[in-house]
Design a protein around this nucleic acid. Structure first.
Length: 310
DNA sequence: CAAATTTGACCCCT
DNA sequence: AGGGGTCAAATTTG
């Protein structure tokens, strides 16, 4: 088990390193005074490639670290700068009007009363039993499409809390939500709470993963991504079964590669060391105490075409 | 009961 | 027209 754990840690280390380098590359390409510019303008294609590489590492880290969030050991330490799982709470099912809500308001539904029989506002089931985790980021953006559905002043908080749901809540039944709150002590940063994993197919709205033929680096990047792809939550669950606790509707959440995706944790404008630190802390803390059977050279359960679809 | 979360209706922008 | 933000109200939660 210890060896397996070190495999995972090594992999994460490499991905973090790659993420860091990709970010540096992007900053270089962004900087007009850097030598890259001497040979002429940096093409948008090059910029795009840098972004893709960065995103690939970020996504990869996301996949390996979040796919198993249901399995993580809950930590009582509520340090806001570290990612953690929130303790699972009761799962009281039974709200009669939870999932099949009205279609997205548009056109006709606007003029009509919400429901012929009754206003169903607030008729919902809270999702604290779902995977919940926090992170700190300099941006609220990530690779998923979100729609803001509410904002509220929170007691004893300087900044309001914003509530987001997945854009595909109604067309695909994706139940992922997130809450965003600007940090008091560091208003440049946002504390983001993700609730529930995405079940929608919008996972990689990012351009397709760089393929071997696209770029010389593609070999490395796609290899890593493909390797990671065998880490479906299902497999992770299987491997860690004996020493982990079960979420109530875990099976519901175990869609393949169904994981939170966060975007660039390091800000583009500045090389904020705090943000970089956050990135590291986040990834490390998100790692479970369990170890996984990582074999980089075989067993690609994942159909790569899924990566290339979106 | 106060605070937090979500809905539904409305508004704005593209 | 359609998508996304706003906000008061409804409802849940502790």
């Amino acid at each position: 088990m210890a060896a397996l754990c070190s495999y995972r840690n090594k992999l994460i280390q490499e991905l973090l390193q790659g993420q860091k380098f990709a970010n540096q590359l992007q900053l270089l390409l962004h900087d007009e005074h850097k030598p890259f510019q001497q040979h002429g303008l940096v093409s948008s294609h090059q910029q795009e490639l840098a972004v893709k590489i960065l995103r690939s590492f970020t996504e990869s880290l996301s996949v390996i670290s979040s796919g198993n969030t249901s399995e993580l050991v809950v930590s009582d330490d509520r340090d806001y700068h570290q990612l953690q799982l929130l303790p699972p709470t009761n799962s009281s099912n039974g709200s009669p009007c939870t999932d099949d809500r009205r279609l997205e308001d548009s056109g006709e539904s606007k003029k009509r009363p919400a429901c012929s029989n009754k206003d169903r506002r607030g008729c919902y089931k809270r999702k604290k039993n779902l995977d919940t985790w926090r992170m700190v980021s300099s941006t609220v953006e990530d690779a998923h499409a979100w729609r803001k559905y509410g904002q509220k002043e929170i007691l004893n908080a300087k900044h309001p809390r914003s509530y987001y749901r997945c854009t595909h809540k109604y067309d695909q039944g994706c139940r992922a939500t997130k809450q965003v709150q600007r940090m008091e002590d560091n208003p440049e940063m946002f504390e983001i709470t993700y609730i529930g994993n995405h079940t929608c197919k919008d996972l990689f709205t990012a351009p397709k993963i760089i393929t071997d033929s696209d770029h010389p680096w593609g070999t490395t990047v796609s290899h890593i991504v493909r390797s990671l792809s065998s880490y479906t939550p299902t497999k992770i669950k299987q491997e860690c079964k004996e020493e982990t606790t079960q979420s109530d509707d875990i099976s519901e959440n175990l869609s393949s590669l169904d994981s939170v995706v966060w975007d660039d944790l390091v800000p583009f404008e500045s090389s904020d060391p705090a943000a970089a630190a956050v990135s590291t802390v986040y990834s490390c803390n998100k790692m479970p105490s369990n170890s996984f059977d990582i074999d980089l050279d075989r067993e690609f359960h994942f159909d790569e075409s899924e990566f290339l679809l979106n």
